[in-house]
Design a protein around this nucleic acid. Structure first.
Lengths: 159, 159
DNA sequence: ATCGTTGCAAAGCATTTGCATGCCT
DNA sequence: AGGCATGCAAATGCTTTGCAACGAT
């Protein structure tokens, strides 16, 4: 019963940090008739274990530690499922890869990417409040402030 | 001398609308030791002839009318050169293809994409002024307001 | 006659998809 | 046992690149 022992061991590890996130997600999944699998566990743990916004590639690497051999497409499918569930959000950042993060990790916030160094900066949730109000009033456009990263030059790269 | 006659004919056509743009660009190119070629002419004309923001694909189709057989990679290389020149700018719009437009066509402006229908909306250049000021003051971040399209739901798609 | 530009074809990168197998519940 | 999820491999969409041939100056 090595497999079972390993599984239990892994679950214990998760309780350290990402455990609560994993358990909550498991419940939400089952409530929809979907399943909490090892790949999904590993993806949630990867996201919960980093304060950064991660690319699919980074999540793959991280999840591979907890669950060796996970497939790249499984990561994408897991992220999609978790997004449907409302657990994960993604950010489009210029032409770089999409970044993913847990919705629970921080309150709603916006992002900016530096065109030069590629760094992603978290911004207060209300930086776009004025713009959002104007867009709504003038164009009827309902802004989703966190979905794309603003672009420009970060402090270090602005010369 | 059919080729020469055709070339002259094309140049005459361009004077109708895009001509001035093409001539100005030609001068800028030559000032740098670069050349005004038929593909580049066709790309500038395509951009000048549309008030929309065009994708590389759309530019290819349009440029192919003026210069049949242009290659896709030539379009990309032309756009890159024209961007270096400051004549062309591009917009990143969610996960859709990059959009290109002439910098001369309008004053600086921002953009928004509808997540649902994909439509791109032009916004007044100053919608992000408040956000830009805050980013600069609080984070030292210099915002480039036109480089990425904001995302959300357009009037028609917001239900 | 130079040497910047092009066409072609192939590669690159991020992401998606079809299908048989595997494993949660 | 039943059916959702996975792995694999191939395909997709957008964009870039190497290299020999072409054409603007």
């Amino acid at each position: 019963m090595d497999a079972m022992a390993d599984l239990e061991h892994q679950r214990q590890l998760e309780r350290g940090l990402a455990g609560s996130a994993v358990e909550g997600v498991a419940a939400s999944l089952r409530a929809r008739g979907e399943r909490m699998t090892q790949p999904r566990r590993a993806v949630v743990a990867a996201l919960a274990g980093s304060r950064e916004h991660l690319s699919a590639e980074e999540i793959l690497v991280d999840a591979s530690k907890a669950y060796p051999g996970v497939n790249r497409s499984t990561i994408y499918r897991a992220l999609e499922t978790l997004a449907d569930l409302g657990v994960v959000q993604h950010i489009h950042s210029g032409r770089a890869a999409t970044l993913y993060h847990l919705t629970t990790e921080q309150g709603p916030h916006a992002h900016a990417t530096c065109d030069t160094c590629g760094r992603v900066i978290d911004l207060p949730g209300d930086v776009l409040a004025t713009a959002a109000a104007r867009l709504r009033a003038d164009e009827g456009f309902v802004l989703d402030p966190g979905h794309v990263a603003l672009s420009g030059q970060c402090r270090d790269c602005a010369s």
